[in-house]
């Protein structure tokens, strides 16, 4: 009787220990295997590539690379504050070529990829890539061009969520959706979108609140997309 009780207790203790261990392990592996939580944000241009250069009437100059970086940093900190893992391809002002950006993004196994640029006009432009033709061509020129193909539908879904969110945050600004071939997005194995924010002639990127507003809109789109 006593023996049975001791054995029962041991079984119970072992079960509880195993259960606790399995729960913790499942939680840990679940987080690692769920790239849906990870957003990679790419700030366009950088280093000697200034992107669009705008000289304002007050004699100040805004370089696209700086505005892109400011917006990307704001997006990353807003997402992190909301508990979403977020990383930058270009955390500082340095030149990166298109393939380097793709490699940096892929290294984080992203669940979403967003490349931030400025537009030449007063509108927000949202781009999804238009995939290249000859996917069976052995002389394929993009090393990674097939990566985006399985995700193109999800990229459009994320673009749609982004469009809605930006329209809500900036009701007086046009938001245009465009599909053209974009090699960086082709190289990403995850839903991938390029966002161009209005030219510095229309938004003052020296004001940190502007990047903050855009970041809130992007974070809203990520939440809506993940739902």
């Amino acid at each position: 009787m006593l023996l049975r009780k001791i054995l029962m207790n041991k079984f119970l203790s072992a079960f509880i220990v195993c259960f606790a261990f399995m729960t913790l392990w499942a939680q840990a592996s679940g987080a690692a295997a769920s790239p849906g939580n990870t957003v990679v944000v790419d700030a366009g241009h950088g280093g000697y590539d200034a992107g669009i250069v705008y000289n304002s009437p007050d004699g100040m100059q805004t370089n696209e690379k700086d505005a892109d970086l400011r917006i990307a940093r704001a997006v990353i900190s807003t997402l992190r504050a909301a508990g979403t893992e977020a990383f930058a391809t270009r955390p500082v002002d340095r030149y990166m070529d298109i393939s380097q950006r793709a490699r940096a993004a892929q290294a984080k196994s992203p669940g979403l990829f967003l490349s931030v640029h400025l537009s030449s006009t007063g509108a927000f432009n949202i781009y999804v890539t238009s995939l290249p033709q000859d996917q069976t061509d052995p002389g394929q020129f993009y090393l990674y061009s097939n990566r985006q193909r399985p995700y193109i539908g999800e990229s459009r879904d994320f673009a749609s969520a982004l469009e809605q969110s930006i329209k809500q945050a900036f009701p007086n600004v046009s938001v245009l959706y465009t599909e053209i071939p974009l090699p960086l997005l082709d190289m990403i194995g995850a839903p991938a979108v390029m966002l161009e924010c209005p030219s510095p002639a229309y938004l003052n990127y020296r004001d940190p609140a502007v990047a903050g507003r855009i970041a809130q809109a992007v974070a809203g789109a990520v939440r809506a997309y993940e739902k």
Binding site: S130, L131, P132, Y177, P181
Partner: peptide
């Protein structure tokens, strides 16, 4: 090979290279 794609929105010339922007979402 880079610029010409299967997308119906970007195959022609007059209509594609064509802004392709329609101001509406992908849905």
């Amino acid at each position: 090979r880079e610029l010409i794609t299967n997308s119906p929105q970007s195959t022609g010339v007059s209509n594609a290279a064509n802004g392709i922007s329609n101001g509406t979402g992908p849905e």
